Amino acid sequence: MSIAEYSPLILFVIVSTFTPGGATTLATASGAHFGYYRSMPFMYGIALGLGSMAACAAAGLGGVILAFPSLQFAMKLAGSLYLMWLAWKMTRSGPPHLHASVKRPTTFVAALWLVWHNPKGWAMTLGAAASFASVASQPVYLVFTLGCLFGIAAMFSLSLWCIAGLLLARLLQTDMQWHFFNALLGLLLAISVIPMWL
């Protein structure tokens, strides 16, 4: 199969992973407060989580989760509460040398947990599996293709957002600018919860 036949899927994955949302907001904040290298476990957790979610969606697990409204609601609620807690911590933090509320980057396990409790992510990866099932000649190829594409694209996207946060941090000179920046990121993170409920 040629690369041209995969191009619609690749475009879908790129747009899905680069669009601003909870993970990209957290990557920007992490880059601003902790730098790129200290943010890598978080980015690896999100990338692995999204890649494994896409693989599971292609294998059929996503359909099972979406078939049980109570399970879907519980996941949505847990994910929303966690994101709101992170948003609250973010808005209360100051410059990197004062950030008493955010002492370390989000961990690999927390990032993985966050992704797997996101019904929007399940819907997106399940939609990709259903829409692009024809690109793979066998189901196992679809599992592998979706898992790899979503994982790689997420890591690349989060890296760019993290670097953007790092560059923004160099422009912020005063405590007031840092408080405004953190409040804005916290607000964006809180807003990112809304699409999960629509």
Rank of each mutant, 00 (worst) to 15 (best):
A130M: 03
A130E: 12
S131L: 06
S131H: 04
S131M: 04
S131D: 03
S131A: 07
F132G: 08
A133C: 01
S134N: 05
S134Q: 06
V135K: 07
V135T: 12
V135I: 15
V135Q: 07
A136R: 05
S137W: 06
S137Q: 15
S137F: 09
S137I: 06
Q138I: 09
Q138P: 05
Q138G: 05
Q138H: 15
P139S: 12
P139K: 10
P139H: 12
V140D: 10
V140R: 12
V140T: 08
V140N: 09
Y141P: 02
Y141S: 13
Y141N: 15
Y141R: 11
L142W: 14
L142M: 15
L142C: 14
L142N: 08
V143Q: 05
V143W: 14
V143P: 00
F144N: 00
F144K: 04
F144T: 15
F144C: 12
F144D: 04
F144R: 03
T145V: 14
L146A: 11
L146G: 07
L146T: 08
G147A: 05
G147P: 12
G147K: 09
C148R: 01
L149I: 06
L149F: 14
L149H: 04
L149V: 09
F150Y: 14
F150T: 00
F150Q: 05
F150P: 03
F150H: 09
G151Q: 04
G151I: 00
I152Q: 02
I152Y: 04
I152P: 01
A153C: 13
A153K: 03
A154I: 02
A154W: 01
A154F: 00
M155N: 14
M155H: 10
M155R: 11
F156D: 00
F156C: 12
F156M: 14
S157G: 07
S157E: 07
S157M: 12
S157R: 02
S157K: 05
L158H: 13
L158S: 11
L158N: 08
S159G: 14
S159A: 13
S159I: 04
S159T: 15
S159R: 06
L160W: 14
L160Q: 13
W161G: 01
W161Q: 04
C162Y: 08
C162V: 09
